[in-house]
């Protein structure tokens, strides 16, 4: 067993694939991040991300997969789900070990797993599109904090940009500490420096005057539409798992 360590980027992953084929490294284990504890393993191969090599692998993938297939692969990796790198890698190897396009070979465990990962990521993306709750700040910007299970913020650009085209907004992933800001023209990723004195709470304390009013009206609405004689808490929680509640105006 060879253990490869790479920097966590997609290019890094593709570089690792290059090395695996070039140096015939089977079987392998792929790890993310800097390597400190190398003494634990017999052999640790650090992968230095190399654009040229990554590019060659990507070209190879493009030849064997549809454009959508490459996109799906990219998203599965970008989601940063713990422990899934080996499956993403398994998928890539299955691609190269076959002559035809294997995207729909659901009998294969890696193809199926990728489709499951994608389903999870998509669900998380949909949840964010649904559960983002903007709060209007004094300067007219609409601000929302999120804590998605997976890294889906980049997948939200298209939806929010085409929907809220006439208001400034910011969606901030406080788990991964980066956000998306739209200034009425374009979106950009931003990182805010929240030190002790400058907690997110304080930054957003500058609510606009009517913010509280509409939050209350929404809570009222939410309670009014409930039909008590149909109560079904299990179903309710299945649709909105509790970990999302703290950012939902109507559940606070």
């Amino acid at each position: 067993m060879h253990t490869l360590v790479y920097d966590g980027t997609f290019e890094g992953l593709l570089t690792a694939v290059f090395e695996i084929y070039e140096r015939k490294l089977y079987p392998v284990k792929l790890l993310k991040g800097e390597w400190r504890n190398s003494a634990l393993f017999e052999e640790v191969i650090p992968i230095v991300t190399d654009e040229a090599r990554a590019g060659r692998v990507l070209t190879g993938l493009r030849k064997k997969l549809s454009a959508a297939g490459v996109q799906r692969l990219y998203i599965s990796h970008m989601a940063e789900i713990t422990g899934e790198d080996c499956n993403v890698l398994g998928f890539i190897r299955h691609v190269f070990d076959n002559d035809r396009n294997i995207e729909e070979d659901y009998g294969n465990r890696y193809v199926m797993r990728l489709s499951e990962i994608l389903k999870m990521v998509r669900r998380e993306k949909h949840r964010m599109e649904a559960f983002v709750r903007f709060q209007k700040l004094n300067d007219g910007t609409f601000y929302a904090a999120i804590e998605p299970d997976f890294n889906v913020l980049p997948l939200l650009i298209k939806h929010f940009k085409s929907r809220y085209a006439d208001q400034k907004w910011m969606i901030y992933d406080i788990k991964r500490n980066y956000g998306l800001y739209y200034d009425l023209h374009d979106t950009q990723f931003i990182e805010m420096d929240f030190d002790e004195l400058n907690k997110p709470v304080d930054v957003i304390a500058a609510y606009s005057e009517d913010e509280g009013i509409y939050q209350n009206l929404w809570k009222n609405y939410f309670n009014s539409v409930n039909i008590v004689s149909r109560k079904n808490t299990k179903l309710h929680v299945r649709h909105i798992p509790k970990r999302y509640w703290r950012h939902l105006t109507e559940k606070i």
């Binding site: 649904a130 085409s162 929907r163 085209a165 006439d166 208001q167 039909i227 808490t233 179903l235 309710h236």
Partner: peptide, 20 residues
């Protein structure tokens, strides 16, 4: 560049009886 679009039909919340 106006407000909103109507495309995919999102459930933004669920009532306590589990409806969208």
């Amino acid at each position: 560049k106006g407000l909103g679009n109507a495309s995919n039909g999102i459930c933004h919340s669920y009532t306590e009886d589990g409806r969208c």
